[in-house]
Design a protein around this nucleic acid. Sequence first.
DNA 1: ACTACGCTTCGATCATGATCGAAATATTCA
DNA 2: TGAATATTTCGATCATGATCGAAGCGTAGT
Lengths: 228, 228
Amino acid sequence: MQTIAPELAELAALIADPGRASILSRLMDGRPQTASELAQVAGVTPQTASWHLARLARFCLLKVERRGPRRLYCLANPLVAQMLEGMMTVAVAGSQPLRPPRIDDEMRRARTCYDHLAGELGVAVSDAMRERGYLVLDHEVGELTAAGTAFLCSLEIDLRPSSRHRRALCRPCLDWSERRPHLAGRAGAALADLAFRRDWIRRRPEGRSVEISAAGLAAFRTLFGARI
Amino acid sequence: MQTIAPELAELAALIADPGRASILSRLMDGRPQTASELAQVAGVTPQTASWHLARLARFCLLKVERRGPRRLYCLANPLVAQMLEGMMTVAVAGSQPLRPPRIDDEMRRARTCYDHLAGELGVAVSDAMRERGYLVLDHEVGELTAAGTAFLCSLEIDLRPSSRHRRALCRPCLDWSERRPHLAGRAGAALADLAFRRDWIRRRPEGRSVEISAAGLAAFRTLFGARI
DNA sequence: ACTACGCTTCGATCATGATCGAAATATTCA
DNA sequence: TGAATATTTCGATCATGATCGAAGCGTAGT
């Protein structure tokens, strides 16, 4: 019986190293990062990181872009991000009984998940939108209502599909720190984009977590009705 | 920065062994199987398989049910199946350039993917339903149209949600052998269930692949318009 | 209670691959 | 062209975990 089990094992082995897992996890913030930065994140020397990055890129998990003397790495495509999403969801569930849930507070509070909001912020915004009837969001399925579409349009959020790749408008993404679904898909990405543009949230120099500005806190509370 | 990278790596390491990958891949057919069967699939001795199974079960990737002197193992929950789906999709894409795509012919022809149809059959049926306007199916998003709902109802397919877990009615699952999406979710599961009940397809004693009966071939062609 | 069978635990062996120092390569800027 | 910096390649070392034989355990049937 020929199956894809060998390929599956090969892929898993690629993620099974703590250093590479850290790199992939870090790249889930969607921003291209240099080999040196990723070496630091992984807690290994640059030459070791280089070896890890080469393996990940050879398997097309990573895309590399040469910018001057440095190389910027990022996840190869949304499929990889979605796969990691799924694995993280199972990972926290599976390792739960043994390990105390030691998650960085800033990370839990607010972060980006590839291209959309996650953490308490992401879940709170999604919950609020659901309560207002803008959204139907489940562990497996998500749908933006007419009212929700109108609401997002009133915020000048562009929900038109990109020409390149067709993407789901609205889909759930299981938040691994909150263990509840939050909004992902084009709508989630557009919302995060808006939040950055209006300076509601700012990327912290270190890590995937984001800082909620005072204006952002007010906006999420009043505009969305988020309890945060 | 505390992340879930360690847990992610731990989970990946669990799948990274060829034997365990074979076991997980095999269990994707949705049927509980004994430790001995799985040992044979993995190509290892029973005591080695036992060790693998214990590790998988400890991480809650597998559920075990004691039936007499033997133990039946199956995937712990649909989340695990969906994660493996995602990994397989990336795995075939990533390892493609190097490896010749040596996939078992029967497997490619028709198989089950956890609870729905896959392979040429699964894709052909999904394509046909799409062409008839029953279905909108994309790499990321799926929707059953009113006509599609009516069609499935006319086949006496029960689309009511199960009380236990809410599940998506209609979602795409990327077929790793065909590299195209096929129908999954409650609708896909119900359709596969119907196909088994009407003896359109039969499980082969060995492996995950299914055999299409003569009646099945006729049914898929005439009822669905599938080119298969 | 005894036997048969499926499965698991223990112990020892062995192979794969992660790591880093040292050195080479590539790119930009002066 | 030469210096500075980022990154990769090479080589040697070392640790983790996969494997199977042997033995132990638990369940079902006689």
